[in-house]
Design a protein around this nucleic acid. Structure first.
Length: 372
DNA sequence: ATTCCTTTGAAGACC
DNA sequence: GGTCTTCAAAGGAAT
């Protein structure tokens, strides 16, 4: 997939994958989208039965018609549009489009018992039954939303971090940024949620860890016992002495942001729980979005990458590649990694030979076939 | 307990 | 430079 090494300005996503649906009737698309849920479910279920059959369904043909060729021509327009978007933050960020922006999604992993009263800290999100985050009203983000002392947080959290919580407007007090980088934060970055304002070690001053930072996998921490006798491999023992590096996760891309936001909604609507199935639906919906709607997420993702870069200038995606090869997991993971690689290759071969693509417009479809 | 599945997009590796 | 691979999230299913 040709990536846009865009001169001037960040690339906003894989342009060739952007869909120019809208040239032929956005309204229809909107209606379609509403009808998606039930159809998605039905489609998905039937697709699980026999994908090749579905390929021939009239419905499938209709959807394919709707998607074929309509992606083209979007990129440039899209970019233009996005330029506009970035200039009108007000329009974009006041929309309820990002309740699930990951840095606002504090509650789940980070605030285990975070049923916070609306007045205490709106950053905390409790997924509502209808799938929308109450965070909607959060954007643009403001310091007002940050309670100095979230009641749900252990009090010693802040003590441990050694950071005083206060509602200073001075970002330099919050960001753990390289010298001078605070000044590099453009005004447009002012909307960044507080959860991004980290202290040392990736902790927010409130004690809330940055979502991109996860503690080293606990999997390896399980002590190994052999008939009651503790056996700790030398390598592991050695590793234990070294301070464990927190794993810095990749910033979420546009689709991931979209998934995060919409997952609950789809789950509620479809009563589906299986992520693989949900992701299929979300993939379809993603392509059904208008370019404006997608643009919002591309812009968000761009800003997230931007901030990620500011926060972790030395971080590279490669770091996490290698986590499986060396580092934490050691030899086992090295082997697993090899297996994984093989599996993926085999899978791809299968898809090439087996016509295993989704009729509803799997965006990889063309890639897969082209590459064969 | 661990891996797989499934999606899109970004980024690194490789040829 | 084009292509391939990995990893981000998520959680049930499979191993």
């Amino acid at each position: 997939m040709p990536q846009l090494s865009s001169g001037g300005g960040d690339d906003l996503g894989a342009n060739d994958e952007m869909i120019a649906f809208k040239d032929e009737g956005e309204q229809e698309e909107k209606i379609q989208e509403n009808a998606f849920t039930e159809r998605d479910l039905a489609d998905l279920k039937s697709s699980l039965v026999n994908e090749s059959e579905i390929n021939q369904s009239p419905n499938a043909a209709a959807v394919r018609r709707g998607q074929q060729g309509e992606h083209r021509g979007f990129p440039e327009k899209h970019r233009e549009h996005l330029d506009g978007v970035s200039k009108q933050d007000g329009g974009m960020y006041k929309t309820p489009a990002y309740p699930g922006y990951p840095f606002l999604m504090l509650p789940d992993p980070y605030l285990p018992n975070s049923s916070v009263s609306p007045s205490s800290n709106k950053v905390s999100v409790v997924q509502q039954s209808h799938g929308m985050h109450p965070l909607t009203s959060l954007l643009p983000y403001s310091n007002e939303h940050f309670s100095p002392s979230p009641p749900h947080l252990p009090t010693d959290m802040s003590q441990k971090t050694g950071v005083h919580r206060h509602q200073s407007q001075d970002l330099s007090g919050y960001y753990s940024l390289p010298p001078g980088s605070v000044g590099q934060i453009t005004p447009s970055m002012g909307w960044f949620p507080h959860s991004l304002m980290l202290g040392p070690s990736g902790m927010h001053p409130t004690g809330i860890p940055h979502p991109a930072i996860v503690p080293p996998s606990g999997k390896q921490d399980h002590d190994q016992y052999d008939r009651g006798m503790y056996v700790k491999p030398q390598v592991e023992a050695k590793r234990e002495k070294e301070p464990k590096k927190p794993v810095i996760k990749k910033p979420l891309n546009a689709f991931m942001l979209y998934m995060k936001e919409m997952r609950a909604k789809v789950i509620a609507e479809c009563t589906l729980k299986e992520s693989a199935a949900i992701n299929q639906i979300l993939g379809r919906r993603w392509h059904a979005l208008t370019r404006e709607e997608q643009a919002k997420y591309y812009e968000l993702a761009r800003k997230e990458r931007q901030l990620h870069m500011q926060l972790y200038p030395t971080w590279s995606a490669r770091d996490n590649y290698e986590a499986g090869l060396s580092g934490v997991a050691g030899e086992k993971s090295k082997a697993d990694w090899g297996k994984k690689k093989r599996r993926k290759r085999e899978k791809q071969q299968d898809s090439n030979t087996g016509q295993m693509f989704c009729w509803w417009g799997n965006p990889r479809e063309s890639e897969t076939r082209d590459s064969s």
